[in-house]
Each structure stands twice: as C-alpha cells, then as structure tokens.
Amino acid sequence: MRENAELKKKIEKKRQALNQIAKRFGVLDQRTLKKSEELDRIVNEYIQLKH
C-alpha cells in the first residue's frame, strides 16, 4: 500500500515537470517526449501493482 502512495507522488511530480517542459519547449521537443516516456513508465508500474 505504501508503494502505491509513493508511486502516486512520483506520478504527480513527473506530470508537473512534464507540463512545465511542454509549456516551455513545446509538446514535440525531445525533452518533453523524454519526460512523457518517464511518466509512462511510472504509470505502467503503478498499474501493474494495482492488478
């Protein structure tokens, strides 16, 4: 259960970072895409734990 809470915090932090980078550099910038992939990995990990 604690791991779920930690992953939720990580997801929120990565989401905020992604939004900031996307606003600054645009959604097609490599930095934005990299952050998006990082967020995807964490979300997938969270989903795996839920099932």
Score class of each variant (00 low, 15 high):
M1V: 15
M1D: 15
E3S: 10
E3P: 01
N4Q: 13
A5M: 13
A5Q: 13
E6W: 11
L7Y: 03
L7G: 04
L7H: 07
K9H: 13
K10Q: 08
K10N: 10
K10W: 01
I11T: 07
I11P: 02
E12R: 10
K13M: 07
K13I: 08
K14E: 05
R15F: 02
R15P: 03
R15D: 06
Q16E: 14
Q16W: 04
A17R: 08
A17F: 05
A17P: 04
A17V: 12
L18S: 00
N19P: 01
N19T: 06
N19A: 10
Q20I: 04
Q20F: 05
Q20E: 13
I21R: 00
A22H: 03
A22G: 04
A22C: 12
A22I: 03
K23A: 12
K23V: 03
K23I: 11
F25I: 07
G26I: 04
G26H: 06
G26D: 08
G26Q: 09
G26V: 08
V27N: 12
V27R: 10
L28V: 14
D29K: 07
D29Q: 06
Q30C: 05
Q30I: 12
Q30R: 15
R31G: 04
T32M: 06
T32V: 14
L33T: 02
K34R: 15
K34T: 13
K34G: 11
K35G: 01
K35E: 08
K35A: 11
K35T: 05
S36F: 01
E37R: 08
E37F: 13
E38K: 01
L39N: 01
D40L: 04
D40P: 00
R41S: 07
R41Y: 09
R41T: 02
N44I: 04
N44G: 07
E45P: 00
E45S: 05
Y46Q: 02
Y46P: 00
Y46K: 01
Y46A: 00
I47Y: 11
I47K: 09
Q48R: 15
Q48G: 06
L49Q: 13
L49H: 10
L49E: 15
L49V: 06
H51G: 05
